[in-house]
Design a protein around this nucleic acid. Structure first.
Length: 479
DNA sequence: TGAAATGTTGGGGCG
DNA sequence: ACGCCCCAACATTTC
C-alpha cells in the first residue's frame, strides 16, 4: 500500500468541487483528512465567536460525511506546521494536499509549510477551491491590479471560461490504522452561558447539505425578483449563501454553474442572474484588493485617511453594538446581527454608514464587531466593505454619500415589518412613524406603548447635525 | 448601492 | 377663453 495522502482542510469544508480531496482520492493513496485549529497563526484575526459556532457545526457535518466515505476526519490543535509534521511521522504520509487560503498570514504560513514539506521530498500541492479567479491573474491592460469593481469584473469574466465543478469522491481509502484525533466537543467552540447563539439554528444549517439547500431554495424562489428584493430586509430576497461560501461548504464554481444553468432554462432569469453573479464578483474583488493591499483589514486603502479625526466615543460604540442607538433601522440590524449572526446587506450599509459617518467612529471598530458577531465574517469581504462605506477604500463610496437611516427605512422597509421583527418595543407603531419615533406625535407613541427615553432610547445623535458634521470632516480631507 | 437643495415644467384651479 | 398662480413631479446640481 502506498504512503497516505493528508488532505489539510481549512476553508473548504465540503466534498464536492474540492480539488485537494479529489486529487487525494485519485492518487490511490489512503486518505487522511485533517482539520487543524491554529488560532495563534491568525494573529489578531483569529476566528470570532459566531464563526466558531459555525465551525463547530460545519466540522460535525463534514466529519459524518467523511466517515461515510471511509476516511474519518482527524481533528488536531496547535501550530499547523508542527501538527502536520507529527501527523506525517505518525502515519508515514507521503503527500499533503490543500486548497489555498488568501488571508495574508495564512498565505505566509502555507508558503513556509509548502517549502518545508517539499524540501523533505513530500508531494506538497495546493489547489484553488475558493475563488473563480486567482487574485493575481486579473490585470489591467497596463498589467496593474484593478482598483475599480466594474472593469475588474468585466476583465475577470473575459479572462476565460470558469471550470466545471468536480464531483465528490465516491469513496476514500482509509489509512491502515486509525489516526488519533481530538474530540470536537473539547474545543469549546460553542458559547457557554449565556448562549447567545441559541437562535442561530433557526436560520442556519452549517455544512455542505445546508449550503446546497440554500442554493436550491434560492434558485427555485428568490432569484426571479433578486434585482429588487435583494434590497428589502423585510423579505427573504437574498441567497444567504455567505457563511457557506466563507467556510467553503459550497464553492463559487458550483454557484456559478447552477445559476447559469437555471438562467439557461428561462430567459426571465438572465438579468437577475447577472445581478446575483455580480455579488459573487464583489467577493472576488475583495480578495483581489486584499491581495494587492495586505494591510486592508487594518489600514485605509487611501493614504489621505491616515490622519482622519475619528471620534473616540466608547459609549456610542457600545450603544451601536447593542442596538440601542434610538434609530430603528440601525437598531433592528444590530439586533438581527446579535440574534442570528447575520444582517441583511442593505442594513449593513445603513448601520455601517451610521457608525462611520454620523458617529465618526473608526471603521476598524465596526469591522472588529462584525468579525466577532457575523457567521459569514470573512477577512477580505469585511475589510473591503467597511472601507467602501467609510470612503477610504478602492472604488469607495464618495465622501458625501451619507445614508439617511429614516429614508432608507421608509424606502426598503416600507411597512416597518423588519423593524417590528427585531425591535419589539416599537412593534405597535404604525408604518408612517416607525422609522422616526422622535418625530412621532405623543398620542401615537402612547397608543403604541412607546415612551421615548424609557421603553426605547432617544436617538443618540440628531441626524441632520450628524450628517453636517460628517460632511464637514470628510470634505476637509479633500482640501 | 445617497440626500438635499435647487431648478424646471406642466396640469389644473380660478378669477 | 385666457392668463396667472400654485405646486406636485420630475430633473439637475451640489454636498
Amino acid at each position: 500500500m502506498s504512503a497516505p495522502a493528508i488532505v489539510w482542510l481549512r476553508q473548504d469544508l465540503r466534498l464536492q468541487d474540492n480539488p485537494a480531496l479529489a486529487e487525494a482520492a485519485a492518487s490511490g493513496r489512503p486518505v487522511i483528512p485533517v482539520y487543524i485549529l491554529d488560532d495563534a497563526a491568525a494573529g489578531a484575526w483569529a476566528m470570532g465567536g459566531a464563526s466558531r459556532w459555525w465551525l463547530h457545526h460545519s466540522l460535525s457535518a463534514l466529519s459524518a460525511a467523511l466517515a461515510d466515505l471511509g476516511a474519518p476526519l482527524v481533528l488536531r490543535r496547535g501550530d499547523a506546521g508542527e501538527t502536520l509534521d507529527r501527523l506525517i511521522a505518525e502515519t508515514g504520509a507521503g503527500a499533503v494536499y490543500w486548497n489555498r487560503r488568501y488571508e495574508p498570514l495564512a498565505v505566509a504560513q502555507d508558503t513556509a509549510i509548502k517549502a518545508q514539506l517539499a524540501g523533505r521530498g513530500l508531494d506538497a500541492r495546493s489547489f484553488n477551491a475558493a475563488l473563480l479567479f486567482e487574485p493575481w491573474t486579473v490585470r489591467t491592460q497596463a498589467g496593474e491590479p484593478f482598483k475599480v469593481f466594474t472593469p475588474f469584473w468585466r476583465a475577470a469574466q473575459a479572462s476565460g471560461p470558469i471550470a466545471a465543478p468536480l464531483p465528490a469522491p465516491r469513496a476514500l481509502a482509509a489509512p491502515a490504522a486509525p489516526v488519533a484525533g481530538e474530540a470536537l466537543e473539547d474545543w469549546g467552540l460553542l458559547p457557554g452561558r449565556p448562549d447567545w447563539a441559541r437562535s442561530f439554528g433557526e436560520m442556519w444549517q452549517p455544512g455542505e447539505a445546508g449550503a446546497l439547500r440554500k442554493l436550491t431554495a434560492f434558485l427555485d424562489g428568490a432569484i426571479i425578483a433578486y434585482a429588487s428584493d435583494r434590497d428589502r430586509p423585510d423579505t427573504d430576497g437574498t441567497s444567504m449563501l455567505s457563511p457557506h461560501l466563507h467556510f467553503g461548504e459550497i464553492g463559487p464554481r458550483q454557484v456559478w454553474q447552477a445559476v447559469r444553468f437555471a438562467a439557461g432554462r428561462t430567459g426571465a432569469l438572465e438579468a437577475p442572474a447577472a445581478k446575483f453573479l455580480a455579488e459573487i464578483g464583489w467577493r472576488e474583488f475583495s480578495y483581489h484588493l486584499l491581495h494587492q493591499a495586505p494591510h486592508l483589514p487594518e489600514t485605509a486603502f487611501r493614504p489621505e485617511f491616515a490622519h482622519f479625526p475619528w471620534a473616540d466615543d466608547r459609549t456610542a460604540l457600545s450603544r451601536w453594538q447593542a442596538g440601542q442607538t434610538g434609530v430603528p433601522i440601525v437598531d433592528a440590524g444590530m439586533r438581527q446581527l446579535w440574534t442570528y449572526g447575520w444582517m441583511h446587506n442593505r442594513v449593513r450599509m445603513v448601520a455601517a454608514s451610521f457608525l462611520v459617518k454620523h458617529l465618526l467612529i473608526p471603521w476598524q471598530d465596526g469591522e472588529a464587531w462584525f468579525w466577532d458577531t457575523l457567521v459569514d465574517a470573512d477577512l477580505a469581504s469585511n475589510a473591503a466593505s467597511w472601507q467602501w462605506v467609510a470612503g477610504c477604500g478602492a472604488d469607495a463610496a464618495p465622501y458625501f454619500r451619507v445614508f439617511n437611516p429614516v429614508l432608507q427605512g421608509e424606502k426598503f422597509d416600507p411597512n416597518g415589518d423588519y423593524v417590528r421583527a427585531h425591535v419589539p418595543e416599537l412593534a405597535g407603531l404604525p408604518a408612517p412613524w416607525i422609522h422616526k419615533p422622535w418625530e412621532t406625535p405623543e398620542a401615537v407613541l402612547a397608543g403604541a406603548g412607546v415612551a421615548l427615553g424609557r421603553t426605547y432610547p432617544h436617538p443618540i445623535i440628531n441626524l441632520q447635525a450628524g450628517r453636517a458634521r460628517a460632511l464637514a470632516a470628510f470634505s476637509a480631507l479633500r482640501a
